[in-house]
């Protein structure tokens, strides 16, 4: 086991690893760091993919190893954990706020809750928004447009 202080230190380092597609978010905000533990001299970080085909997954794995190396942790292994499947419910409140500030609407509601039809515009806050496409520039997003400020924006789909 890594000591409590050790885990906190590693988590703080991982706080600095950004999602390459949504650089406003750290991977801890994204909720994909599932476990940090030590096996002998090796630090093992368990990550879960957001979407199974997301090209950012591999980049993130490499970035985790690099960030820990840069902080003097030599022996690192990244483990991919499929279950339980990632959910946008794991986005932290800070992550949601950062997304909004970045101009991306965070997911509305929770995955197993009732379907939320209204998505707030991340720029002006209006709920008068319309979906233009279920899919966006990355697997996790949909395309929306605000009817009030007329700006297009991306929305992280509940998943």
């Amino acid at each position: 086991m890594v000591s409590r202080a050790g885990v906190d230190e590693i988590r703080a380092i991982l706080d600095g690893v950004r999602d390459p597609e949504m650089p406003a978010l750290s991977i801890t905000d994204l909720g994909i760091v599932r476990e940090i533990r030590q096996e002998d001299d090796t630090v093992v970080v368990a990550l879960t993919p957001t979407y199974s085909g997301c090209p950012a997954t591999r980049v993130i794995q490499d970035d985790v190893v690099r960030a820990l190396h840069e902080n003097g942790i030599e022996s690192v292994r990244v483990e991919v954990r499929l279950a339980p499947a990632w959910s946008t419910d794991w986005l932290t409140p800070r992550g949601r706020e950062r997304l909004r500030e970045f101009g991306i609407a965070p997911p509305s509601g929770i995955v197993d809750g009732p379907v939320v039809v209204s998505v707030a515009c991340p720029r002006c806050g209006s709920f008068a928004t319309r979906e233009r496409s279920h899919f966006g520039s990355t697997p996790c997003k949909a395309l929306y447009r605000c009817d009030v400020c007329l700006e297009p924006f991306e929305y992280v789909k509940p998943h």
């Binding site: 979407y51 199974s52 085909g53 997301c54 496409s133 899919f135 520039s137």
Partner: peptide, 20 residues
Amino acid sequence: MEEDVAVANVSLDLFGQARM
């Protein structure tokens, strides 16, 4: 354009699933 993006996304998901 929206369908171009959508079809690419679906394809990517399926490649990811195939890989698993």
